[in-house]
Design a protein around this nucleic acid. Structure first.
Length: 277
DNA sequence: CGGGACGCCTGTGAGC
DNA sequence: TGCTCACAGGCGTCCC
């Protein structure tokens, strides 16, 4: 479910309400991808700081009431996770696997497939957080990521461009939906080897990626089945997806049927007329 | 080192 | 109706 826009939408929904909140306790459901990594009681009384996003991870810093840093929680929503901020108690459902109960509401991770995780780390730059973030590429909106730098990164990779975008070690943020959409917007065939993309086309792809992610963010993300922001509001970007999950439907640009094929074991949607190798 | 396959889970929809 | 199968927004790990 959650790609960069959805994770950022989640972050924006919880950052201000939770800043300065004090952790009262933790309730856990079934096991997530990784163990919490600390006794839940250790979190009690700690105060939440500004929540930041790195790739598709969220970092929720914690401090002693006196202000002394006390590590934090690294959250990932996996494939099916979403965050809810509950201002009134609500019974946990079968897919509610982690509640961070604070004096300003409960941050609840709902995740049917349980590929998500909440992991305690003493800091972002020490394990286990550092290990999990180590391989992440550039943030897509980081101005330090230039067309030239992006092109140089692509030139070192021979895998299909779609796979390189998904890998997230060059640039983070695009998952299956936005990788397909950005490639469509840039007119690049998803199976094209990354190192065969010219400098101008790389520049166009970077711009398309940024535009696609920004537009999705503006629409509150995509809701294919059940994504919602922290207040339960669904995203709407899926309605304007040009190719994703639209196999057989006419390409919005040329009318040819949208195709679907597997690239790197993942469904890939594209227009074979508009997207060139 | 890059690249590709696999597995972690549960739910859902299509086809028989 | 009920079964089986393919597939679903991610990503760390393993093996070549």
């Amino acid at each position: 479910m959650p790609e960069l826009p959805e994770v950022e939408v989640a972050r924006r929904g919880i950052d201000a309400p939770l800043r300065g909140a004090r952790v009262e306790h933790v309730r856990r459901g079934k096991a997530l991808r990784w163990p919490l990594g600390c006794p839940p009681a250790k979190l009690r009384g700690l105060v939440i700081g500004p929540i930041v996003r790195r790739g598709k991870y969220l970092w929720l810093p914690l401090a002693q009431p006196g202000g002394h840093a006390a590590g934090g929680l690294l959250w990932h929503l996996g494939m099916s996770g979403s965050l809810g901020l509950l201002t009134a108690p609500r019974a946990a459902g079968p897919h509610d696997h982690f509640d961070l109960v604070t004096d300003r509401g409960t941050l609840r991770l709902t995740d049917p497939r349980r590929f998500g995780a909440v992991v305690f780390s003493r800091g972002l730059d020490v394990d286990p957080a550092a290990r999990l973030l180590a391989r992440l590429g550039a943030e897509p909106f980081d101005p330090a990521l230039t067309p030239a730098g992006f092109h140089a990164g692509l030139a070192r990779r021979h895998a299909p461009i779609k796979s390189v975008l998904l890998a997230g070690d060059l640039v983070v943020g695009a998952g299956n939906i936005y990788a397909c959409e950005a490639l469509f917007a840039a007119g690049i065939h998803p199976a094209l080897a990354a190192d065969r993309i010219s400098r101008p086309r790389a520049a166009r792809l970077l711009a398309a990626l940024r535009q696609t992610l920004a537009r999705a963010l503006d629409r509150g993300g995509s809701t294919l089945r059940d994504f919602a922001d922290a207040h339960g509001v669904a995203g709407s970007y899926q309605a304007e997806a040009a190719v994703y999950a639209r196999a057989g439907q006419p390409c919005p640009r040329c009318g040819a049927p949208v195709r679907r094929r597997l690239i790197g074991q993942r469904s890939t949607y594209f227009c074979s007329r508009c997207q060139k190798r």
